[in-house]
Design a binder for these strands. Structure first.
Length: 327
DNA sequence: GGTAGACCTGGACGC
DNA sequence: GCGTCCAGGTCTACC
């Protein structure tokens, strides 16, 4: 089958290894980071079918990204793929936008940290967030792997089968029992199906208004209230989805944050008290609070396990959190 | 508005 | 190898 090769010009400071390996979702299926070749590959679900794509930043290419696909693409398919890659890699966050963060928190100016890896679609980000709630990280890895293998579209290439992340339409048709029994999502089963229905339904029939959620004109408060109204989304998940939407003013604090507050910031008190103190600690960062908090924690993980781009999903990628360090 | 308990799974631990 | 306990965020019932 004829392949396609696309060239993308990212922001001038873009570093694929650094900026992909910046948030745990790069370790979740269907994403595969090859730390030896420093290449990211995954199956993308496009309107005309799934396609396997490999993203690299070859030396000597002036920083440009090379995207190779497993099959040829029509113009519409190329545009759709570029849109999804741009969202996933946050290529629309310019060096100037990062400079605003670095002015507030100069600790990350030299290393250039600032972009956070996310998913090609908002729906995938929402489901990944739900699978990260009330479960330890290895459980999240398993759920995403199985969701892809059981429900996601397949691409066969050279005797190997790879899977896409399920679309909202696909997940809306799956029974809760299948999700629980085969994907091991537990009590999240009905909530995931309900979310998938809301995402696949037209807005005028009560579906989720994705344009509104992704519109910069929508206020943080409206966004938060809309998200916490969704099934399976509480305050933590809503704040996390907000950072995935580029709203960095709220902190999705969980037990990992409490550990960080106690061990790294020296905060004392009950979990609830430590969480309040962590909020207060990062409040001066205003609309950049999450990036300051996150990269402080990410730097701590890297100090224990080496640069994130060297992590493998099956080893360090399962055990990098502070919860495991404590053990 | 605040709190307690159920919801599930997988891993750790004790026997 | 088996049973028990625990971590984890959301949701609901109750005060």
């Amino acid at each position: 089958m004829k392949q396609a090769t696309l060239q993308l010009a990212p922001p001038a400071d873009y570093d694929l290894a650094r900026d992909v390996c910046s948030y745990g979702y790069f370790l979740l299926a269907p994403n595969h980071w090859d730390h030896e070749s420093r290449v990211l590959w995954r199956v993308f679900a496009l309107a005309d079918g799934p396609v396997l794509a490999e993203i690299a930043q070859p030396k000597g290419a002036g920083g440009k990204l090379r995207v190779r696909t497993s099959r040829s693409l029509l113009r519409e398919g190329k545009d759709e793929l570029v849109g999804q890659v741009t969202r996933m890699l946050r290529l629309d966050e310019s060096a100037e936008m990062l400079a605003a963060f670095h002015r507030l928190d100069p600790r990350f100016k030299k290393c250039g940290r600032g972009r956070l890896f996310r998913s090609p679609t908002l729906f995938e980000d929402v489901i990944k967030t739900v699978t990260s709630c009330n479960v330890q990280w290895p459980g999240t890895i398993t759920m995403n792997q199985r969701l892809c293998e059981v429900v996601g579209a397949k691409v066969r290439l050279g005797g190997v089968t790879a899977h896409a992340f399920p679309s909202a339409k696909q997940l809306a048709k799956v029974s809760a029992g299948t999700l629980r029994g085969r994907c091991r999502v537990g009590y999240r089963d009905k909530r995931i199906v309900e979310l998938a229905r809301l995402f696949s339904m037209p807005v005028k029939r009560g579906g989720i208004d994705q344009a509104m959620l992704q519109d910069p004109a929508t206020s943080d408060d409206v966004l938060f209230r809309t998200l916490v109204d969704l099934p399976g989304i509480g305050p933590y998940a809503a704040a996390n989805i907000m950072q995935l939407l580029g709203r960095y003013g709220r902190l999705p604090l969980d037990t990992e944050s409490v550990r960080h507050g106690r061990t790294m910031l020296g905060l004392k008190g009950s979990s609830a008290q430590v969480m309040k103190k962590v909020h207060a600690h990062f409040a001066p960062m205003g609309d950049q609070a999450f990036r300051s908090y996150w990269f402080e924690m990410w730097t701590f993980y890297e100090s224990k396990h080496g640069p994130a781009w060297t992590w493998e999903r099956s080893t360090t990628g399962r055990l990098f959190t502070a919860a495991h360090l404590n053990k």
